[in-house]
Write a protein that binds this DNA or RNA. Sequence first.
DNA 1: ATATATATCTTAGTCACTAAGATAATTAGC
DNA 2: GCTAATTATCTTAGTGACTAAGATATATAT
Lengths: 170, 170
Amino acid sequence: MSRAKARAALMQELENALRRSSAQGVIFGQTVANTVGISGSDLECLDFLNLEGRVTAGRLAEMTGLTTGAITGVIDRLEKAGLVRRERDPADRRKVFIAIVPENLARIGRFYEHMQRGMVKLWESYSDAELKLLLEFATKGYETMLAATEELKSMVEAPRPKPAKKSKRS
Amino acid sequence: MSRAKARAALMQELENALRRSSAQGVIFGQTVANTVGISGSDLECLDFLNLEGRVTAGRLAEMTGLTTGAITGVIDRLEKAGLVRRERDPADRRKVFIAIVPENLARIGRFYEHMQRGMVKLWESYSDAELKLLLEFATKGYETMLAATEELKSMVEAPRPKPAKKSKRS
DNA sequence: ATATATATCTTAGTCACTAAGATAATTAGC
DNA sequence: GCTAATTATCTTAGTGACTAAGATATATAT
């Protein structure tokens, strides 16, 4: 096999591996959600809250791609489960910040332990330089996906080049 | 900052980056599905079919974690959209193989093009050795998630150590 | 032959989602 | 300051994908 072909094959393998692991990540998430007794979207929102800290309901809608109405439902369920708290912004009383309730989040952490241990074990097998390479790859991959998502949205949001406002009505 | 601390911080960054990109991957998938006009699960199944080739309905259920009833619906919709075909196994007529219809799949490929280009560009910036490192990481990450998923399922499937059929009734 | 097992499909009911509009608070124009 | 427009969340009605349980059809075992 030529060097170029070998490289193309390597990239194909990498693509498949990334897709497989991405799909498995989705399934893992669903499984955690089932175990906890909440929906996949609910868990996804919790995850965003963990990453970004206290955010408004509207921002959650943006981040997840759900409507604000759906987010209201998500927050209702998470709040009832004691996992998050609504906090009205005193400076702008229209806004509702959603904040995690760390005490109760602990009981979810339990379901990530096995995963966490496995991942740490994997990460530990790499040198600092290798970890940096992986971090850069993950970051750039994220940026690529974000850009592709925006591109796709713009394709779908402007599908009609205008109803062609005919100057002469038929 | 000590070396150990710097390394821990690096790992934390890597974890966040992986979670972010994983979340964005989910959103990208949802966006593609919306654009195509099918559900997220439908697209996920198509993706599995692309990776694994012709598979049975039951295997799709296993792979996605959906019930066989739900898979029937997925296949019905995909078949109606002309994206897959049901093929009864002549050797075991209970089985239904699901096969992609490549001609019609092309119109979906269009929505992956931008993403694909971005990813190829990213991959090309790495040496063969680096690509191998990334492939290994993705593969091991997949295996870790798979194991964690199985572990989680066993936690939930055997939550009660049996009604304890006591040998000596109290 | 009959029973059991396997693979998919059907049915009834549930739950999260969207679209549209209601409510409430803020900002802008006059 | 008063009215209009804007922003942020919530409410409501209706839709669609999902699960659980059981039906159907085929295959294997005793």
